[in-house]
Write a protein that binds this DNA or RNA. Structure first.
Length: 651
DNA sequence: GTATCCGGTAAGGGTAATGATCATAC
DNA sequence: AGTATGATCATTACCCTTACCGGATA
């Protein structure tokens, strides 16, 4: 099945032929200390403990052959001399781009915020117009919304380069300068074009916004996606909150609320860090946005800021919308700076310090609300890597990889350049498939293996007062299984099969119609515009937690596929149909004893999922409807339900 | 001299897509 | 008993976060 979450859809390679050899990939940048292999086997906690005392030594054959560099590695003295030398040089050096950005004057920041405000207005107006009855967005030749995959329908406008709101480089924005002709497409609201307006302050920008039809803008933002430049705006948190895209408040309704049972507890929000803390409900804190986009905050620093300042930031997979925003931002920067594809890649994969361009990363980060600059950095370097996504490994590649590791050790960047695959892909292939290959077992698990895995996991978690869902070190588990099962095998076996049996008091639970009901209404309550935005870890709650995030996502896909023509529908349209199909709370599954037959492999009750044949769905008003739905959406729903009715009568 | 920041590399942990097999309903 | 459907299990490429550390800079 071609799922809407395919990486290929989300991340397109550069639209040019790039010769990887022409890119300054950071392969042999420096000779530095690496972790020893002993440490590779240690858990993160063990590594933390040994962090300070670690006296590195990596059996790097190349380094062993180079006594001078090896000496440099083992002694700080030469490095310090070098430092001193460069220190004087550094003093005289002009400020780098990044420090210049960090040192921006208030006036510059203000000017940039004007640029951003104009850009946001441009986006809103463009989207409003596109959504309106008289669309006048410049549409590229051959553009046909029907040809856009369902997942892309949340973008009610053509690709980014047609948008025409290039970001102004820091300090270069001139409010009086004419905007690009297509910056504010569509009919001028209230007789003026936005490009003719001059905004003296952010309050004026806001007033201008308020003169528009705010309900329409709210709807636009609901479907537009994250406002491309929202975090750059100097709005107050309260003002920002009015413009906050809905996904920033992704919290599913509890299962008990859906079932009409008083809640025992409330699931926390794990992925939008700190969202639920009292007083931190405003994700748009401008200081935090600036911090996230300009300071290279590591995990510990981020955690500290979350604790001390109530910083809110986003973790987890980049959604299709974020992917789109990043692509747009990269394209805009490339356009504004007149960069060739080669030059762009040189910035992304800068090999030496003179090519470093922190401003580039800051601009990109500003395009994706709540993401730390490091996360964007890593994401973009992977997304734009010329060796990305090469599919299954061939035997000769495996041989090449094994030989490279034998020669070079686990220096993945060096191995990468020899094998022709990304460093992380080489590492993954090696650790997941080549390591212990001679003893690795595939195929169904024996009862003994299942018992052993259960024993190992419970020893590692429950018996030590740790969380069985989050505190398992799967590499360690794999090792304790004697290397016969890989970390992925162990993890999937546990999370998707054994864990739910353990949670269900030894009985293997089966998916019921009630589970489907809960899932549909939980997804509905998230109010997302596209299911790539769903954080599946947040779906379960304390009272409905038998199913892993992975299982829930697959269940959702099954439910989605039960909607005829789902490939051509938006998430909202699919949701409209499922909301109706699952309008009624089904009775709980009967106890196992009343079943006709038990499935051999499983041991718990089950009810099959007659999603596409559910004939009870006739009450559109039921369920937590979250939107009025357009005329076209209604007709889609009606058509679908009629088709289902006929299917039911046929059967 | 020291603290801090930037950013490159590796490791740990997780997800998505897909295929195979088998239970179940009809 | 045969068949269609869907649940379950398994595999593997791909992805994100964090740790670590060297170099640059304040």
């Amino acid at each position: 099945m071609q799922s809407i979450t395919t990486p290929a859809m989300a991340v397109d390679p550069l639209p040019v032929n790039i010769n990887p050899e022409h890119i300054s990939l950071p392969v042999e940048k420096k000779k530095k200390k690496k972790r020893s292999r002993e440490d590779d086997q240690a858990s993160p906690h063990e590594r933390k403990e040994s962090k300070k005392k670690r006296k590195h030594v990596n059996p790097d054959p190349e380094e062993l052959e180079e006594p001078s560099s090896a000496a440099a590695v083992d002694s700080d003295a030469p490095a310090k001399k070098k430092k001193k030398k460069k220190k004087d040089k550094g003093k005289a050096k002009a400020k780098s781009a990044e420090t210049a950005l960090a040192d921006q004057t208030d006036a510059e920041i203000e000017a940039n915020s004007h640029a951003s405000a104009a850009a946001l207005l441009s986006a809103i107006v463009a989207a409003s117009v596109t959504n309106s009855e008289a669309p006048q967005m410049p549409v590229p030749p051959g553009y046909d919304p029907r040809l856009i995959p369902a997942s892309a329908h949340f973008m009610p406008y053509p690709p980014p380069m047609h948008f025409g709101f290039p970001m102004a480089p820091p300090g270069t924005f001139d409010p009086s300068a004419p905007q690009p002709s297509n910056a504010f497409p569509g009919p001028p609201p209230h007789g003026n074009t936005f490009s003719e307006l001059s905004f003296g302050s952010n309050e004026e920008v806001l007033r201008a916004l308020q003169e528009l039809d705010m309900s329409k803008i709210a709807n636009v933002l609901r479907t537009l996606g994250d406002a491309p430049t929202a975090p750059q705006l100097s709005f107050t948190p309260q003002q920002l909150d009015q413009l906050s895209p809905p996904d920033l408040q992704q919290l599913a309704t509890s299962s008990n609320a859906l079932l009409g049972v008083p809640a025992k507890s409330n699931a926390g929000h794990k992925r939008l860090i700190n969202m639920a803390m009292p007083g931190n409900e405003q994700p748009g804190n401008i200081n935090h946005a600036h911090l996230l986009a300009n300071k290279w905050l590591g995990a510990s620093k981020l955690a500290e800021l979350v604790r001390t300042e109530g910083l809110v930031y986003k973790k987890g997979k980049f959604s299709a919308i974020e992917e789109h925003l990043i692509r747009s931002a990269v394209a805009n920067i490339q356009h504004v700076r007149q960069l060739s594809d080669q030059e762009l890649l040189e910035i992304i994969f800068s090999k030496n310090d003179k090519n470093r361009d922190t401003a580039f990363w800051s601009e990109l980060t500003a395009a994706v609300p709540l993401r730390p600059i490091i996360a964007v950095y890593h994401h973009v370097r992977r997304s734009y890597h010329p060796m990305k996504q090469q599919g299954p490994w061939k035997p000769d590649e495996d041989d090449l990889l094994k030989q490279a590791v034998a020669d070079l050790g686990q220096q993945w960047e060096k191995v990468s350049s020899r094998v022709g695959r990304m460093a992380s892909d080489c590492r993954d292939r090696y650790r997941n498939h080549l390591l212990n290959r001679d003893i690795r077992i595939t195929g169904p698990w024996s009862k003994e293996e299942e018992d052993q895995l259960t024993q190992i996991v419970t020893d590692m978690t429950v018996k030590q007062g740790k969380d069985v869902d989050n505190d398992v070190f799967w590499s360690k588990v794999s090792e304790l299984m004697g290397g016969r099962r890989g970390r992925q095998q162990c993890r999937i076996k546990w999370t998707d099969a054994l864990s739910k049996t353990m949670k269900n008091e030894g009985q293997k639970p089966r998916w019921s119609q009630q589970d489907a009901f809960i899932l549909v209404h939980k997804v509905d309550s998230l109010n997302v515009r596209d299911d790539t935005e769903i954080d599946w870890k947040l779906i379960s709650d304390a009272d409905w937690n038998l199913w892993s995030a992975h299982t829930l996502q697959r269940r959702w896909l099954t439910l989605k596929k039960s909607v005829k023509g789902y490939e051509e529908m938006t998430h909202q349209e699919i949701m409209d149909i499922l909301r109706i199909k699952k309008a009624h709370l089904p009775p709980p599954p009967p106890p196992p004893s009343t079943r006709k037959r038990e499935r051999k492999v499983t041991s718990a009750p089950s009810v099959n999922e007659p999603d596409s044949r559910d004939s009870h769905a006739t009450t559109p008003e039921a369920g937590p409807s979250n939107g009025p739905g357009t005329a076209s959406e209604e007709s889609v729903v009606e058509r679908q339900l009629q088709e289902d009715d006929s299917t039911d009568s046929d059967s």
